[in-house]
Design a protein around this nucleic acid. Structure first.
Lengths: 261, 261
DNA sequence: TTATCCAGTTAACCTAAGATAATGTCGGGT
DNA sequence: ACCCGACATTATCTTAGGTTAACTGGATAA
């Protein structure tokens, strides 16, 4: 059982130690994209049973004993990020429970991009070999995986827009809106609140700002009663205001009627 | 025959009016990712034969008579971009000859992201139905398409890094390095020079800067003899210097030994 | 109990880049 | 030869956000 930084907050997955069946976030997520056959579901569940725990701040690329396939986050926060030679760092994506990332050693191997945990995580790896059974283009699983990849791309485009042409306040607001929708989709939000295991420094390198300016902006968001952020818990006090500020439109996440709050 | 803005420069595709066989940029591009069967190649070529011409500045999403599938650029520059309500605009990706983009009406339909031509283009659409024939996960085509998607994702991550934590000079330098490598891979560069049908305004919304600052930065790059940019032609005068300035590492493009210049 | 560490906060100052707008250049159309 | 529109360039002033560094407070460890 992984020990979380913020055990005080009793994250949902601490209460349900062995996710199986419908509370498996991967199955839940993929079924949002396309209906899965019973065979698909049991395939996924059986591979998730082999998930391993990783401590916070751990590079998932380094132990590359696994062949090509996908890497699935079942609990905790992970991220794609890149270090520059200057020491600067940029987070380019978050992986929250139910998210997966395509793992192609041919592609990942040599780049300076890395995938790491942020908080302690449970992560499963499923080889492409294992997926191949139900991998005709017609099956629901194949379609769901394709959709998952398209949503990931759309999210990246949204992030380019975020750092490319939004103000500090808008960037942070947009990120918070996105994270809430994504976490809510896998049952990790309670109303407008959710656990957010990120430091202000993490936020800064996500959103392309300095620590100090993130701090200032968070205070502004608090002062104007958009959010409440204490400890590692974020509550959105004014969804309409925040999403309006950010021009947040959840369509790119393809989660059905999410975003109607 | 599309009329190009810069006919004065006689782009390669003007000299070879009917790309077929090996000078088809799509086939050339995909074969860089995985070996294709003869059936794969003829399939691709036959669909490229139905390509249509589009003038510059044309939204490719609007005429959505085609079903899901991929959209292939054979000639010209296109881009993904997004308008904000404020009128601001952000380009999130370029599509150059040989590039494709997955077209999923379920996904694209409602988002505010659009795909448009920049210069006049020849573009083919291939339905997913048509691809399904050789779409077992084992075939080369399927693998090449998957790689293509992974490369697109990696490029997007790189762009997030670009706008997230690089200076104006570095951003532009990085973009130029990337474009050169990509165009060179489909034979559209002659040495270190290539046609670049982008205005400074286009560059600005790509790289998250103002028109004016792009202008200043270009002058600096010219003054320091990194580049020569006149008309719509860019020549990199000092590849080592420019790629070093940008910390450009072409690995993410997965083009074999590209970048060794 | 104190020392240490880490995250968060604040303040003073600085700079890269934005905004605006005037001016220049060039090619195309008439 | 003239005008026009699209880009590019330049100058000016303004501002969002960066940098540095000091200080706080809670949590853990010794």
């Amino acid at each position: 059982m992984p020990r979380h930084l913020n055990t005080a907050f009793a994250a949902p997955w601490d209460l349900a130690p062995t996710p199986g069946g419908d509370d498996n976030p991967l199955v839940r997520r993929l079924e949002g994209f396309a209906p899965l056959s019973q065979a698909d579901r049991t395939l996924l569940l059986s591979h998730c049973a082999n998930a391993r725990s990783y401590p916070a701040q751990t590079d998932l690329a380094r132990d590359r004993e696994e062949p090509d396939g996908i890497l699935v986050v079942l609990e905790g926060f992970a991220c794609w990020h890149q270090y520059r030679q200057t020491g600067a760092r940029q987070i380019t994506a978050y992986l929250v429970p139910g998210d997966l990332c395509e793992w192609d050693t041919a592609l990942i191997g040599r780049t300076d991009h890395a995938v790491s945990t942020i908080s302690p995580c449970r992560i499963a790896r499923i080889s492409r070999e294992a997926l191949r059974n139900s991998y005709g283009a017609q099956t629901g699983l194949a379609k769901a995986l394709r959709m998952s990849s398209l949503v990931y791309e759309a999210t990246l485009r949204e992030w380019v827009v975020n750092v490319g042409c939004r103000t500090a306040l808008e960037r942070i607001a947009h990120l918070f809106c996105e994270l809430h929708v994504r976490l809510d989709a896998v049952g990790l939000a309670s109303g407008l609140g959710f656990d957010l295991p990120l430091t202000q420094g993490d936020l800064a390198v996500t959103v392309g700002l300095s620590n100090v300016h993130v701090n200032r902006s968070l205070q502004a968001l608090r002062r104007d009663r958009f959010i409440d952020l204490r400890g590692r818990r974020l509550t959105i006090l004014d969804w309409a205001g925040l999403s309006n500020l950010a021009e947040f439109n959840p369509g790119y996440l393809r989660l059905g009627r999410a975003g109607e709050r």
